[in-house]
Amino acid sequence: MSHTAHIPSHRKPRRTTSHMAVRARVAGGVLSTLTVAGVSAASANAAEPAAQTLELPTLTADLAAQVAQSADATQQAAANYALQAERDAAATKAAKQAKADLAQAKKKAEATQKAEAERKKAAASRSSERTTLTSSAGTTTAPSTSSSTASGSAAAVIAFARAQIGDAYILGATGPNSWDCSSLLQAAFKQAGVSLPRVAQDQSATGTPVSLSNIQPGDILYWGSAGSAYHTALYVGDGKFVGAQNPSTGIAEKSLSWDPPTGAVRVL
């Protein structure tokens, strides 16, 4: 017998095959349990929706600058829109005013053309009368009574008119040293107690119309149409008249052939 046979061995005994199989089955059961637990936990996590967290942008200096720039752009666009609206309104107003001015100018042009036509018509009438007086001077310009034999009211009127010869002609003047055509006749007839209208148009429609072939001293001569004459003068006899003709001649005595009148009226 060996001298070491009485000493027990300290080595672990070998595990048998059956013991290792038992331990393998135990380990497999633990792993199965852990696997099922993991699957259940995963299913639970899948069933519950995950909460989402929104991260707001941080207001940095660049972002603030962009916001301010956007606000400025919006304000500028609004200002541009208002300015354009004002320009459109001004253009519309200017167009309306131009249309009104054009209509007014057209109206004035028509009035000017009408006045020119009337002037030419009056000039043609005066030319015709001049021709008539020239061709029949013995009848038309030789009245039956001369100024030297005029008496009474007619003589007073003629005397006053002749006393003003040499005075100035000023449109609208009423004496004593300057006159226009109608104011001279108004003042002259006042010497005979006759009140004449102030303007030539009305004077040409006053009294009784007489033909130029039968005029007498003291009759009123007119140029133009009765009721719308543009000039009047006083017939003084001997084929002459006294009147305030124009600024260049002043108050003067002229023959009928110098400027033949259109018609005549008698108030005395």
Rank of each mutant, 00 (worst) to 15 (best):
K121L: 15
K121A: 15
K121V: 14
K121I: 14
A122E: 07
A122H: 08
A123S: 15
A123P: 09
A123F: 12
A123Q: 14
A124C: 08
A124M: 09
S125C: 06
S125A: 06
S125M: 03
S125Q: 04
S125D: 02
R126H: 02
R126W: 00
R126S: 05
R126K: 05
R126M: 03
S127K: 13
S127V: 10
S127M: 14
S128E: 11
S128H: 08
E129Q: 11
R130E: 04
R130W: 00
R130T: 01
T131Q: 07
T131W: 04
T131D: 11
T131F: 12
T132K: 10
T132V: 13
L133W: 01
L133Q: 08
L133N: 06
T134H: 01
T134V: 00
T134I: 01
T134P: 00
T134D: 01
S135K: 09
S135C: 11
S135M: 11
S135T: 09
S135H: 12
S135I: 06
S136D: 08
S136Q: 07
A137R: 03
A137W: 05
A137L: 09
A137I: 05
G138E: 09
G138S: 14
G138M: 10
G138Q: 09
T139A: 14
T139P: 08
T139F: 13
T139N: 13
T140Y: 10
T140A: 12
T140G: 06
T140H: 12
T140P: 04
T141Y: 01
T141I: 05
T141W: 00
T141D: 04
A142G: 09
A142D: 07
P143M: 07
P143I: 05
P143K: 04
S144P: 03
S144E: 04
T145H: 12
T145E: 11
T145R: 15
S146M: 12
S146W: 13
S146Q: 14
S147H: 02
S147I: 05
S147M: 00
S147Y: 04
S147A: 03
S147R: 03
S148D: 07
S148C: 00
S148E: 02
T149Y: 13
T149Q: 13
T149M: 15
T149D: 15
A150I: 01
A150D: 01
S151P: 08
S151E: 06
S151M: 05
S151A: 15
G152M: 04
G152V: 00
G152S: 05
G152W: 00
S153L: 08
S153Q: 06
A154Y: 00
A154L: 00
A155W: 05
A155M: 14
A156V: 10
A156F: 12
V157E: 03
V157K: 02
V157C: 00
V157Y: 03
V157R: 03
V157H: 07
I158G: 13
I158K: 07
I158P: 09
I158D: 08
A159N: 06
A159V: 04
